[in-house]
Design a protein around this nucleic acid. Structure first.
Lengths: 232, 232
DNA sequence: GCGGTTATTTAACTTAGGTTAAATTTCAAT
DNA sequence: ATTGAAATTTAACCTAAGTTAAATAACCGC
């Protein structure tokens, strides 16, 4: 009798995993993913991307039509979500168990996500009591690849007068995250939108007593839920 | 003004690190390390080893004399010890913080040791209260590369009648470690050597009430200190 | 000090994952 | 329908790290 659950010990290269993750992230926003966009995201030349696309296509992780971009197959998506799950679990673990700041976790998780075992994944998952979001409010995919999309809207789209709660920050730049922290913008912080300048101008708001304003671009990376709406 | 302590972000490949670690371990036992022995340890062909030796020599991590084997330079030893430090800190962390068994930690640490940051290293070191030995009793090198050799002798060399305490088990095979656990042979277990069969025969001993015997070979991987001697 | 076994190195080749530069395809705009 | 810019792919090349097979050096016994 053979051992049954002898799980999946490192089947894909780090490079392959990184490509799949990048494709996943791009396609959830843009549908299908072009070579150039992917190349930009990966910090590589388009030529390198094309070559990898052929490989991923050959091993059935993506559907690839020459000149027309790429989508993950079900198999490819499984792999991508597994890596993203590793990443987000690690981020949360680093915060909770080791006292990392939310600005530091991305870089560390980026490296470790490819190298932890299923055992490790399960243990930190249990230790964190099966969490559903990471320190930036991103959903942690479940073991079987389900990911519940978050409910918030970009702060940039909130109206003046609204009172909202921060539920997600879609940015991993440590500088940006530290800046936001300094303004008191952490997860679950409640803020009141006081003003929106026209022509894509800055958004002004209050957190507690303090008033701040940030640019529209940055505000589009901060996701919020309306406290009234949320209750409904 | 440039940032000063922007520490050493991944300078060597995993492969290089693995070679250096292997050389370190072999040379502390055998002095100088031959191509064939290293090849065996690394699970590679001698030809691959020769090639890598040339490279490591070129970048001054080893002293290499064609046909005569290899020794680490001071720089090479620093790198090796850094990796070993990572490995052993990780092993202990996995046991203490995540509940791993001592038979499971080696494999996991083997993968992670190459990918953790100095930050991570420092944090788990602190969390473990700056430990000096790992779950198998191996010394953890300090940050500056000092390693205090352990004091024990092989159980195989203990005399009948001696009462000794287990201080180190030099074996990472999970099967072996589980077997030893089943016999009650953990670190700090006290055992009484009752008999040594001649012609390299088995060693018989008592742990608590239970009596066991193990082969001389295995007994040479278990290190012990004499309780009387230790006090002195 | 000769000769054969063994250890070691060299040579030629492989694969994965990159690069640059040239060729090709797509697409939008006339 | 054509054309030219932008996107994409192809071709030729590079490096790191491995392989096998052949050549060479070291060492041990006589």
């Amino acid at each position: 009798m053979e051992s049954i659950g002898s799980s999946s010990e490192r089947v894909f290269s780090q490079s392959v995993e990184d490509y799949l993750k990048a494709i996943y992230k791009l396609q959830t926003e843009d549908g299908t993913v072009s070579t150039t966009v992917l190349a930009k995201k990966m910090g590589m030349t388009p030529a390198a991307v094309t070559k990898m696309m052929k490989h991923l296509s050959a091993v059935k992780l993506i559907d690839y039509t020459r000149y027309y971009g790429v989508r993950l197959t079900a198999a490819g998506e499984r792999v991508a979500l597994e890596i993203i799950r590793h990443h987000r679990l690690l981020e949360l673990y680093l915060c909770q168990a080791l006292g990392y700041g939310w600005d530091e976790v991305d870089a560390e998780a980026e490296k470790l996500e490819h190298h932890i075992s299923e055992e490790f994944e399960d243990r930190i998952d249990r230790m964190l009591d099966f969490p559903s979001t990471d320190p930036h409010g991103d959903p942690i995919p479940t073991r079987d690849g389900t990911v519940t999309p978050h409910k918030g809207i970009p702060l940039a789209d909130a109206e003046a007068g609204e009172i909202v709660e921060i539920c997600r920050v879609r940015d991993s730049d440590p500088e940006v995250l530290r800046y936001l922290s300094r303004l008191g913008m952490k997860l679950e912080a409640v803020i009141e939108v006081t003003e929106k300048q026209p022509f894509n101008g800055p958004i002004t708001f209050k957190i507690g007593d303090a008033a701040h304003s940030i640019g529209r671009e940055l505000a589009s990376h901060v996701f919020v839920v309306n406290r009234a709406t949320e209750a409904a």
